[in-house]
Design a protein around this nucleic acid. Structure first.
Length: 574
RNA sequence: CGGGGCGUAGCGUAGUGGCUAGCGCGCCUGCUUUGGGAGCAGGAGAUCGGGAGUUCGAAUCUCCCCGCCCCGACCA
């Protein structure tokens, strides 16, 4: 029983000035969390209870699936991360520190290395596998830009699991087991989410899916096919454009196009010259970029921008990718900024990547590699040949579903879980092997599975709140029932406490607003702000032996006799 | 890291060179009040983010530093 008279809580009447998103504002106002520094938060009692409730649900589902809980320190020595090269690869996002002897340490951003070594230390036979183990741990990442309160913090709580198998078939089974466990977990957490195809990024590995909670303030963008259900993070969206027959396309024709360094200016001149009909989509844009210090050219339709993140995720092995700056152009005098075409790229030694929209046989208007000159009827496969194809162009609503060609919709979401098949990258680097049934040494294959636990608090708040406050699913709320003693008569307070005691005896958690000095209005506002699912008012109706029961989510209210309050509440919570 | 905004009491804010830094919420004392963020009276609480400078005089102007928020880059 939480008594408001003594609960360590102070709600705020005004929105905090430094909060922008609803979950952040409400979690501060309702007294769940307080900011310590950018991306670093402390948790007050209500926040801790909610966080623990989420952890409890996750633990129950992980244990139910047969995964075993372990625990690692946050403070880790450099060695293992040196072996996998992540001490360097992780870059400035890694919190590094030294002990008194000058030894290098880090605050764990994720624990693949440690899990791999733990299994290596205990197991050495195929008979011991499969194995899935997990932990709920505080992670540290020195994010360049923490944001949205606890949605992206520099210190956060994460559940991370890892699976270990002898072969790919085993990995697939372990992966599916985790997927099922995640579905059950997020369903119990009362979240709306989509499972979308993802790219595995710098983690390495192959198959990967994200659990995304749709939310306008989310950081991730994903596509959804309304027809066949295909869903993918934009980074993992696949573009399918068939090859074209170009036998009837006329030969390349160079055009005088003065002062047309941009697509818009070019399209205007083309329409003037040829009497209309041209759009940016008919033009071919050559975006010059630096990929780990190497110049590359990226071809996209003129009406689309290069999505740098998407491109980088699809260019395997590239760590640093950025668009050309003036200094870069200076190193390539043959490149005429604003009039670049792919026709001469081979001569300049520049690798050409084409978005799949630049399909073989398609004809384009593009730069003629001379100032104020463009060329038309430039055909892929005849007049130029890309070195390779890569998803590079921005994805838009209405783009074609790769499965069924229906126009996809685009939405924003918060990433709440990510599962992927890591493969043997870490096991190989750290030499995790087991003997197979033939006595032969095999490198173990791994999966890695994460849930953002502290982020889930915000994501759920984001999805469930309304204008007046938080609004928790029953299993997660700080208390299932919030009893308000509205009035000044001792009898009201005694009755409220008594009712709470009876509910607690039924394992129904309660919060009682037993403040003598707060007016009913204050208590109602606080109850709504805090967001427990059932609010019981012990007030003027008590004269007739009744209490009022309100459902926070729907706003429904009804009076029931005090004597049947416990059963009515039990019924409501089912 | 680039761009923008901001920093005054626990919270929200006013104050653009001049008296003792003002107001609301919250907090303390007393009285009244108790079904939608009550009223009256009294009170505590601020090195105006930090430092240096300009000035007779700086929250206010200048410089440096620190911190926070937003957009972008980045984000196993």
């Amino acid at each position: 029983m939480l008594k408001m008279s003594t609960l360590f809580l102070r709600t705020l009447r005004d929105d905090p000035a430094d909060a922008e998103v609803a979950s952040h504002k409400l979690l501060i106002r309702a007294g769940y969390v307080r900011r310590i520094a950018a991306g670093i938060y402390s948790w007050l009692p209500l926040g801790v209870i909610t966080l623990r409730n989420i952890e409890r649900v996750i633990r129950e589902e992980m244990d139910e699936a047969g995964f075993q809980e372990v625990h690692f320190p946050s403070l880790l020595p450099r060695d293992a991360y040196e072996t996998t090269n992540r001490w360097d690869e992780y870059g400035p996002a890694l919190f590094r520190l030294q002990d008194r002897k000058g030894g290098d340490y880090l605050l764990g951003p994720t624990h693949e290395e440690m899990f791999t070594l733990m299994v290596k230390g205990e197991y050495s036979s195929y008979k011991d596998l499969p194995l899935s183990i997990y932990q709920i741990q505080t992670k540290f990442r020195d994010e360049a830009r923490p944001r949205s309160g606890i949605i992206r913090g520099r210190e956060f709580v994460m559940k991370d699991s890892y699976s270990f198998d002898v072969d790919d078939e085993g990995l697939e089974i372990s992966y599916q087991n985790h997927r099922k466990a995640y579905v059950k977990t997020f369903d119990r957490l009362g979240m709306k989410y989509n499972i979308v195809k993802a790219v595995s990024g710098a983690m390495g590995g192959s198959k990967s899916e994200e659990f995304l909670a749709p939310c306008p303030t989310g950081e991730d963008t994903y596509v959804l096919c309304p027809s066949c259900g295909f869903a993918a993070n934009v980074e993992a969206m696949v573009t399918k454009v068939p090859a074209q027959d170009f036998s009837k396309v006329a030969a390349v024709e160079e055009l005088d196009t003065p002062n047309t360094p941009t697509i818009d200016s070019l399209v205007a001149v083309l329409n003037e010259k040829f009497g209309g009909g041209f759009t940016g989509a008919d033009t071919l844009k050559n975006v010059m970029m630096m990929a780990d210090g190497k110049a590359i050219s990226v071809l996209v339709p003129g009406d689309r921008e290069v999505d740098v993140k998407r491109l980088q995720e699809n260019l395997s092995g590239v760590h640093e990718l950025r668009v050309f700056e003036d200094a870069d152009f200076a190193k390539f005098p043959s490149l005429v900024k604003g009039y670049i075409g792919p026709q001469d790229a081979k001569k300049s030694g520049i690798t050409v990547y084409a978005d799949p929209r630049i399909a073989p046989g398609t004809a384009w208007v593009t730069g003629a590699n001379k100032k104020d000159r463009h060329a038309r009827n430039v055909v892929n496969g005849r007049d130029f040949t890309p070195d390779s194809y890569v998803e590079a162009a921005e994805v838009r609503a209405g783009d074609s579903c790769p499965e069924c060609s229906t126009a996809v919709v685009i939405d924003r979401a918060i990433e709440i879980g990510h599962i992927f098949q890591l493969g043997r990258k870490y096991a190989k680097a750290l030499d995790l092997t087991v003997l197979d049934s033939n006595g032969k040494s095999q490198v173990v294959t791994m999966g890695s599975y994460g849930i953002g636990v502290s982020r889930a608090v915000a994501a759920i708040a984001e999805q469930t709140h309304d204008e007046i406050g938080l609004n928790w699913p029953v299993e997660l709320a700080p208390a299932k029932v919030h009893i308000v003693a509205a009035g000044k008569d001792d009898l009201l307070f005694d009755t409220a406490i008594e009712l709470a005691t009876k509910l607690e005896a039924q394992s129904i958690t309660t919060m009682v607003d037993d403040r003598r000095d707060a007016s009913p209005g204050v208590k109602f506002k606080d109850a709504e702000l805090i967001g427990n699912p059932v609010i019981v008012v012990v007030g003027k109706a008590l004269a007739e032996g009744n209490v009022e029961i309100r459902v926070r989510r729907t706003g429904d209210k009804k009076e029931v006799p005090l004597t049947s309050a416990v059963s009515a509440i039990t019924e409501l919570l089912k």
